[in-house]
Simulated assay, not measured.
Amino acid sequence: MKIAKTLGQAVAAATLGMSLAAGTMAGEVNIGFTGPLSGGAALYGENTLSGLRMAAEEINAAGGFDLNGEKTTINLVSLDDRYSPAQAATNAKRLKQESNVPAIFIPHSGGVFALQDFNEKDNFLIMAYTSVPTVTEKGNSLTVRIPPTFDGYVRAFTDYALENLGTTLGMAGATHEYAKIWGSMIEKEWTSKGGKVVANNPMDYNKSADFFTGVSRIIAEDPEVMFVGGASEPTGLVVQQARQMGFQGGFIVMDQAKIDEVASVAGGLDMVEGAVGVVPLSVYETEPAQDFIKRYKAEYGKTPGSEAAYNYLALHGLVEAMDATESTDPKVIRAAIGKALKNMPTSKNPYEVTDVTEKGGFVTDTTLAVVKDGKIVQVDID
């Protein structure tokens, strides 16, 4: 088993040292990444980057792909933006100017929106790992949204929680742009279906590890359900501290956080009893998912989350599109990526995504999982 590298340091530093100084080498295409590799969301960013790195290593080990009659490899160039939209925009400019990347992967909506201000003009494809619906509704012709939109989660999580957990909700989500949009949508959905929001106190999940003050304000209003969510690690701390202060209700977990990862930080599945969230990859029983989990564990020594799996398949899909068209033109790649996903081997596609909407979103199913009696259980959605 290989020892997992600290991606935010070893991988980023190595790729930057070679790539930014030299630009694109003959027989090599640079692919960009900007995301949080330090701060409270560093684990989230590193999980995303690990899927890209695994895909790039597989592609290169297989000899690369065809480009103008020449076998071409992938060079992943990663930059830390500390979850800052402004820094993400600066990084994207640098990646385009110095490394001539045709595509940039980015795992946060604030950064995606910042890049959409200039990516069509600068001619690069945004590979957006965010479930905010407006990312693809804005009509940006060079954006691909990788995960499913969260509006389906908002409806499904609300329906389940109101029926099974209670009707009073305390809002303890994060303060970044993605969490703000999620929070506003679930508050609207909750109240429109007869529930009551008794407290609303968003917190900065990226900068703090002590959430006792913020959580205590929520608990003081005695909610039956608590809405939480940002990256998995700080979300786990919020849940842990809520339990330590005596909260015994259920949780609605925003899709950025994964129940199994939250439980690991909080102290076990018993700490998240009654939680509602997306189905973790570890619960999937399909052959492509289980095969990816096995290979990822062998590479990194831990169970992968959806960030790794979705970005892994997205980079494979991107390269399949370049291989099929023998082009690195972002417009050509964007037009070809749907067909590329259909033709991609299932071993490269743990979520079995086979289509892209006209507006640029991967076509995937909305899933729902709950924690019952100390186990994560998938629940069918009507």
Rank of each mutant, 00 (worst) to 15 (best):
K2A: 10
V11D: 03
A12W: 00
A13D: 15
M18T: 11
S19D: 13
A26E: 13
N30E: 09
I31P: 08
F33W: 13
G35Q: 02
L37A: 03
Y44D: 07
E46L: 02
L49T: 05
L49A: 15
G51E: 03
G51P: 10
L52C: 11
E57H: 04
A61Q: 11
G69A: 08
T73S: 14
L76E: 12
V77Y: 03
S78Y: 08
L79F: 05
Y83D: 01
P85V: 01
P102K: 02
I104S: 03
G110E: 10
F113T: 07
A114I: 00
E120I: 07
M127S: 08
M127R: 06
Y129K: 04
I146L: 14
F150V: 11
F150H: 15
Y153Q: 13
Y160T: 12
N164G: 09
A172V: 02
A174G: 14
A174V: 00
K180V: 14
I181T: 13
I186K: 08
W190T: 05
S192M: 11
G195P: 06
V197M: 12
N201L: 04
P202Y: 08
M203I: 09
K207E: 13
D210M: 11
V215Y: 04
R217N: 10
A220V: 00
E221I: 00
P223W: 05
V225G: 03
V228Y: 06
G229A: 11
G229R: 07
G230A: 13
V239F: 04
A242R: 03
Q244H: 01
F247T: 01
F247E: 01
V262N: 05
S264K: 14
S264H: 11
V265G: 04
A266G: 09
L269G: 06
E273N: 13
Y284T: 09
E287W: 03
A289T: 13
P304L: 07
P304Q: 08
S306N: 15
A309L: 10
V319H: 04
K339T: 15
P345E: 13
P345C: 06
P345Q: 09
T346K: 14
S347Q: 09
G360H: 04
D365Q: 13
L368G: 09
A369T: 06
V377E: 14
